[in-house]
Design a protein around this nucleic acid. Sequence first.
DNA 1: CCCAATATGATGCAGGTGCATCTATATGCT
DNA 2: AGCATATAGATGCACCTGCATCATATTGGG
Lengths: 143, 143
Amino acid sequence: MKTPSKETQAAWRALLSVSKSLVESIERDLKAADLAPLAWYDVLLEIEKAGKDGIRPFELQERLLLPQYGMSRLLDRMDTAGLIQRETFGDDRRGQSVFLTPEGKAMRDRIWVVYAGFLADRIGGVLSETDAVALRDLLRKLA
Amino acid sequence: MKTPSKETQAAWRALLSVSKSLVESIERDLKAADLAPLAWYDVLLEIEKAGKDGIRPFELQERLLLPQYGMSRLLDRMDTAGLIQRETFGDDRRGQSVFLTPEGKAMRDRIWVVYAGFLADRIGGVLSETDAVALRDLLRKLA
DNA sequence: CCCAATATGATGCAGGTGCATCTATATGCT
DNA sequence: AGCATATAGATGCACCTGCATCATATTGGG
């Protein structure tokens, strides 16, 4: 049987526990500030980056690594919350294009205040620029 | 507003996406082999490490970073699946001690075959020992 | 000794996720 | 054109998770 080295196992355990702790931490911060969760931020950001033509749900799925049904329901909730709009368009009547509402844009901005603080504090405050680059490079090897 | 550097943001995005992808990947492998999910493995391992006296649920919560109700229900399911046993004991009649059944031990062993292969392949195969140590150290700074 | 505070674990409810499947439209092969 | 296949997105169902709260047992202060 293939057996991973102690170093491999230690790196993996650190990866699991650190990412879990950090995600839970930022999610708590967002909830405490009455803001939407991280997944919503990612969607809001992608839509905003897409610009005035909006973006197709299936493109969002691919970029954010969500399953199709997951994105469908996430967009449902964000729509209900008034943060996005979905419009069918003539080109392909199966599809739709997703846009931010002003409230969606405002929500992204408010989340970013908390999120940026978290990143600057919990990551920027702990890792030097050199460390951050090294970490990113090591993680990329795993991708 | 505090703004995290580009390097900080890139490291964070890599951390999020790599840990997510790897976890989904091992979960898929386990499911494909008809085995229990990762969280179950962690519990089975901790119980086994605890030895013949078993382990208390609240100790499992602390070690595995699960909320109390999460561990309570996880143990319910594992009990129903016949992998563990819970016994109340005289010392503190609020509490209980958790033990592996033979099936639980067997499940842990079978999961480890898949899990070890995954780690050796997807991490050990990609990172040198030096890389693995460096990654672990960088992640520890974030903990 | 008694009562408030604390610790251990369980549970009702609302909401989120995975899986399979469904509907509707578009494309391609003959 | 006609029909099989593929693509975009929605949804029913079972299960899982978070939150609040509960029940029970223990501890500590007066």
